[in-house]
Nucleic acid binder design. Structure first.
Lengths: 245, 245
DNA sequence: ACGGGCGATATGTCTATACATAAACTCAGC
DNA sequence: GCTGAGTTTATGTATAGACATATCGCCCGT
């Protein structure tokens, strides 16, 4: 029996959203556990009495949201929930502080160009010898230290970085505007301030700090590795999101 | 002039992906800044010599990824980048530890049912008087403390919670399987362990801890507020993601 | 038993078309 | 000048059909 006639009453609104939410609910409640094969587009389309494009739109969105995985010929499958997946969209500290309505300050502490040593190579994840720029700098908001940045840039992957003026431009901003990336990884952890950090952030030794380490790649090639240290009790990473309405 | 013939050569693959990436590139490089109106579907479709549905698919995906905002009659606009947006998908600590291949342990420390006091109401974000359950519990992996959880559940919003057995089921797991949510907010910060936390996590007083505070709503109604404290140097939130290929 | 080829099948993309809907704009009437 | 009704317009949803493409599984020949 077709369910097309029900379409008139539910508050859901549109058909493909109804389909998407029906499936989403079954996944989130565990009725369809990870690995479960979702009915074929063909079957769903008969069940709702609609065309395949409509079903396809619903499933495509679920796939974009990583809730399901679609495999040609095999069907669509519920994905394992992504435990501990934290996605940060922090393109640019300068812009971030600006968005908070505070005055941005930037200070280059050191910038060294050198052949990558073993620890540089390990941090970037490169095997071959290469040249790097190692940068240490400080961001501030309204003249209060906001974050300490420690960055390595692979000069073989980003040769233009040799020409950039990091005395003026924060390296993060410069990279964002000049170098496209395809993959990134973030790791968030907590540490206590040692002498150097306490000094740089104007906080007490032993105070908690939030650390974000980000690695960025282009087509699998490492571009840059950065470690940002924030005063932990003043700074919070906040995100609000929807369960796809 | 139509660009349809170029479709044969680029490695990009499909047309709608080409369109999406072309637009994405212009946004990420700042060529089209926030607020910029991107060409109408009509114009894009003529530019690439394709049908509107193809353009629509590209734009819909950009909208789903929050890169653009679409307004009827007005057009599509580049959104402000979301500074400091951290999206955590951590449905369930129990499942998370299981996925790591470690033995999950759970221990209810206290569970109190009471009328919400002022601080409860503020934490949940409710105005009216209501009943709540306050739960404190501990999660462990291979018998090592993994996280301390402190949770409030609004009993008016989730009456079924009164019947749940939190001596056996972790409240997070129970809620995930019984209560659908529509919005959530995460805040990540760092603290140092006080006596209670040090005791609960078996770490030293003054050791760094990662704190995740999550609020969950259904259609704007607060459901639960939870604070998870992790040992900071052992625990890392890790996420890898793609710039939409 | 093993591997290559081939057909069946489910998803992936694309088109041309149609109608719905929200919002911005126009303009008449007060 | 202001208000409200009607028009225009861009997006939103849905359709039927077509062809592309990856791949699973079967069968056949060695």
């Amino acid at each position: 029996m077709s369910l097309a006639e029900d379409r008139t009453k539910p508050g859901a609104g549109t058909l493909y959203k109804t389909i998407r939410q029906d499936i989403e609910r079954r996944i989130l409640t565990g009725e369809w556990p990870p690995g479960h094969r979702i009915p074929f587009e063909h079957e769903i389309m008969e069940h709702y009495g609609c065309s395949r494009m409509t079903v396809n739109k619903a499933l495509s969105e679920l796939a974009q949201a990583d809730l399901i995985e679609r495999r040609r010929r095999a069907g669509s499958f519920v994905r394992r929930p992504q435990f501990l997946s934290a996605v940060l969209k922090i393109p640019d500290i300068r812009a971030e502080i600006g968005a908070l309505g505070r005055a941005y300050g930037y200070e280059l502490i050191s910038s060294v160009r050198r052949a990558a040593n073993a620890s540089d190579r390990e941090r970037l994840g490169v095997k071959k010898p290469c040249k790097v720029i190692a940068i240490r700098c400080r961001h501030s908001a309204d003249n209060v230290p906001f974050a300490i940045e420690d960055r390595l840039i692979d000069l073989d992957a980003v040769p233009d970085a040799a020409k950039a003026n990091f005395k003026i431009d924060p390296p993060g901003s410069w990279l964002l505007h000049h170098v496209p990336w395809t993959e990134a990884e973030h790791a968030i952890s907590a540490i206590v301030a040692d002498d150097a950090i306490a000094d740089g952030l104007h906080i007490a030794v032993g105070a908690p700090c939030l650390v974000i380490e980000r690695h960025t790649w282009r087509q699998g090639q490492p571009l840059t590795a950065v470690r940002l240290v924030y005063p932990g009790e003043q700074h919070r990473l906040v995100a609000r999101f929807r369960g796809s309405e």
